[in-house]
Design a protein around this nucleic acid. Structure first.
Lengths: 130, 130
DNA sequence: CCTTGACTTGAACCTCGCTTCAAGTCGAAG
DNA sequence: CTTCGACTTGAAGCGAGGTTCAAGTCAAGG
C-alpha cells in the first residue's frame, strides 16, 4: 500500500496543499506519518476528502464535518444533531426548489424591474414562514 | 404611508441595524430619505429584505443580489446568469437530497465510525461527478 | 433652551475558509 | 558529500458577511 505525499493528495483531490494542511489542523483528515517533515497519507484520505467536499457543498461547516468524521454509533448528541440537520436540509431543498422556479421565470420575464413581477414574488414567497 | 426608521426595519426584518447599513452600502436596499441624519425607509424595504434573505439562503452573494434587484428585462447578460444559476440550483438540490438521505441513515446507523458505513458512502457517492 | 437616546460615520475588528509569505528543513539524487 | 526542490512552520493576509467601537449629530421631548 503506497503512501501518498501531500502533492499527490492535492493533485488527486483537486484541493490545494495549503487546504489539506488546514483540514488536518482542523481535524478533518489525518496524515499517517512523516517522511522527514513531510506528511504521508494513506489512500483512504481521498475517500475522506470526497466526503468532506460533499458535506461542505451541503452546508456543513468544517467544524461540523470534523465532529462527524470521528463519530461512533453511541454518540447520541451527534445523532440528534444529524437528524436536525436533515430537517434543515428539507427546508433548504424546499427553498432552493422555489428559488429555482423564480429564476427560471425571471429568465423569461418582461416585467421591469424583474423583482417587482408578481409571479416572481409569488414563487419566492410561497413560504410557510413568510 | 408611514416611513420606517432603521430600528423598526431591523425589528421587523430580524436583521441588525449594522447589517441594514451594510446592505445599503452594498446597494441591496435604499433608504428613501433622512430625518436629520437618520435614514427613513418605505415599507417596501421589508419585501426587498425578504427577497434578499431568500436569495442569500439560496447561495447568492450580496453582490449578485444587488445586481439582481435592479435588473430590467433587457438585461441579457443577467438573464444568462440567472439561467445558469438555476442550473446550479438543480445540481445543488440533487446534492442536498442525497446528503439528506445519508444523514437520515446516519441517524439510525450502528456502524462505527459512522462514515465507514457502506450504505452511508453509497448515498453520498451517487454522484455523476465522483 | 437643555437633555437624551438613538441615530450617524468611518475604521477596526470578527469568523470562516482558505491562501500567501518568509524562513527553515530534509530526503533523494547526483 | 553537496544540491535542490518541495516540503515544513507560523503568521499574516484575503474576501465575504457582517459587528463593534469611539466620537459626533440631532430630533423630540421636557
Amino acid at each position: 500500500m503506497a503512501l501518498l505525499d501531500i502533492a499527490e493528495v492535492a493533485e488527486r483531490s483537486g484541493l490545494a496543499p495549503s487546504a489539506l494542511r488546514y483540514y488536518e489542523r482542523r481535524g478533518l483528515i489525518a496524515s499517517e506519518g512523516r517522511n522527514g517533515l513531510r506528511r504521508t497519507f494513506g489512500s483512504e484520505v481521498l475517500v475522506r476528502l470526497s466526503l468532506v467536499a460533499c458535506a461542505r457543498a451541503s452546508g456543513f461547516t468544517l467544524a461540523e464535518i470534523a465532529r462527524f468524521v470521528t463519530a461512533t454509533p453511541d454518540d447520541t448528541e451527534l445523532r440528534v444533531h444529524l437528524a436536525a440537520k436533515a430537517e434543515q436540509l428539507d427546508a433548504e431543498i424546499d427553498r432552493l426548489t422555489r428559488m429555482r422556479a423564480s429564476l427560471r421565470h425571471a429568465a423569461v420575464c418582461t416585467r421591469s424591474p424583474l423583482v417587482e413581477c408578481p409571479e416572481f414574488k409569488q414563487a419566492i414567497s410561497d413560504a410557510p414562514a413568510a
